[in-house]
């Protein structure tokens, strides 16, 4: 049975178990949120997604509030906005939130919240600075921009289960640490980048993207990762025809935003000068460029010759792990039906 809640006077119907934040978003209401990530669930820590609920004295965090039929919600009262402004101001008060030169400028959830709440300049500043951790091969950590939302920790421990990150220290000193507070590059981190994927601000950024493009110069293209048969969905961030960074596609099968280190950071090979662009045929001990027809004819001739001389079982095929399931299927079909052998294998098995 469909239920209804009222948000700022508008009736919003919903089914099943949903939080007020989800319903608000479904209905086009913007409620700032920082620690909540759909993949990780509510954390109720940043306290910025608070709303007023008729009949409840204190403001409630909409990310963790399960909607019940008839609930009356206000997201834009002075009381709500005051609290939200204070929270965002407090986050801006401490740390180096200098948006002008931040990689996440234009694509930062904190900046977006500040913009919507009309915070031009932080109301109070108490700053402490620490050096960035640039020791990781692909990831730069800027603790000065970290808002301790904990998303990266949840992602590292619960989603990819690499168990590298956790919070260390306490209170105002709370910080994300790798292993026993090692620089990321010396820790057991495998640089999968899942933490970067979920970070709402510029505290975890892709090293290779630094200085390459502003967020508004980016075109996003969805594609399938070429590395293996899983077929992870990627979103390429391009400036012109150059890849600036690769993100996983949230909510898409099969990877729901996850990528491995190769899929996320190993994209430079496409620009390699050594990349083969035509088939090569070895003549007189040296490779020479050839056309596809020449190459395929040569292979077909050799196969035929071998079959004639030694039978089809003198030939075997090994399918590459970078091929898709469909490609591997065709490969075995070709070898069974056309060549006539069962000598079929896959490199990931050998």
């Amino acid at each position: 049975m469909s239920k209804t809640i009222v948000i700022n006077g508008k009736e919003c119907a919903f089914d099943g178990n949903k939080t007020v934040l989800q319903i608000a978003r479904d209905n086009g209401f913007y409620i700032p949120s920082l620690c909540y990530h759909p993949k990780l669930g509510p954390a109720s820590k940043c306290r910025v997604c608070v709303v007023e609920v008729d009949g409840i004295r204190n403001l409630q965090t909409s990310c963790s509030l399960t909607a019940t039929d008839g609930m009356i919600i206000t997201t834009d009262s002075p009381r709500v906005l005051d609290a939200q402004r204070m929270v965002v101001n407090l986050l801006l008060a401490n740390g180096n939130h200098n948006c002008m030169i931040c990689e996440r400028n234009g694509d930062c959830e904190l900046q977006e919240a500040a913009y919507h709440l009309g915070i031009e300049l932080p109301a109070f500043i108490v700053e402490e600075r620490e050096d960035k951790d640039e020791s990781g091969a692909f990831i730069v950590r800027d603790v000065n921009k970290c808002i301790q939302c904990g998303r990266c920790i949840e992602a590292c421990n619960r989603l990819v289960v690499n168990e590298v990150l956790d919070f260390g220290f306490r209170g105002g000193h709370t910080q994300v640490v790798c292993d026993g507070n090692k620089p990321m590059g010396e820790s057991t981190c495998v640089q999968c980048g899942e933490c970067v994927q979920v970070c709402p601000v510029g505290a975890l950024i892709e090293k290779k993207a630094i200085g390459k493009a502003r967020s508004w110069e980016i075109t996003k293209i969805r594609t399938t990762c070429p590395y293996c048969g899983v077929g992870c969905q990627q979103e390429l961030h391009l400036k012109g025809d150059q890849i600036v960074r690769v993100k996983g596609v949230e909510g898409a099968k099969p990877n729901d935003g996850h990528l491995c280190v190769k899929g996320r950071y190993g994209y430079d090979f496409i620009y390699s000068k050594e990349r083969l662009t035509t088939p090569l045929i070895k003549k007189n001990g040296k490779f020479e460029e050839a056309t596809w027809d020449e190459a395929l004819d040569l292979v077909a001739d050799k196969f035929k010759q071998i079959i004639k001389e030694s039978g089809p079982d003198a030939i075997a095929c090994v399918s590459c792990a970078r091929s898709t399931n469909e490609d591997s299927f065709y490969m075995q079909k070709l070898f069974r039906a056309a060549i006539g052998t069962n000598n079929i294998d896959h490199c990931a098995r050998t």
Binding site: K45, V87, L90, A93, V126, Q148, G171, G172, T174
Partner: peptide, 20 residues
Amino acid sequence: HHESCGQCVPCREGSLVIEH
């Protein structure tokens, strides 16, 4: 401020600003 667990912003950062 010393004892705040540091989980939520109003307590972690609010106590810091008030202390300052």
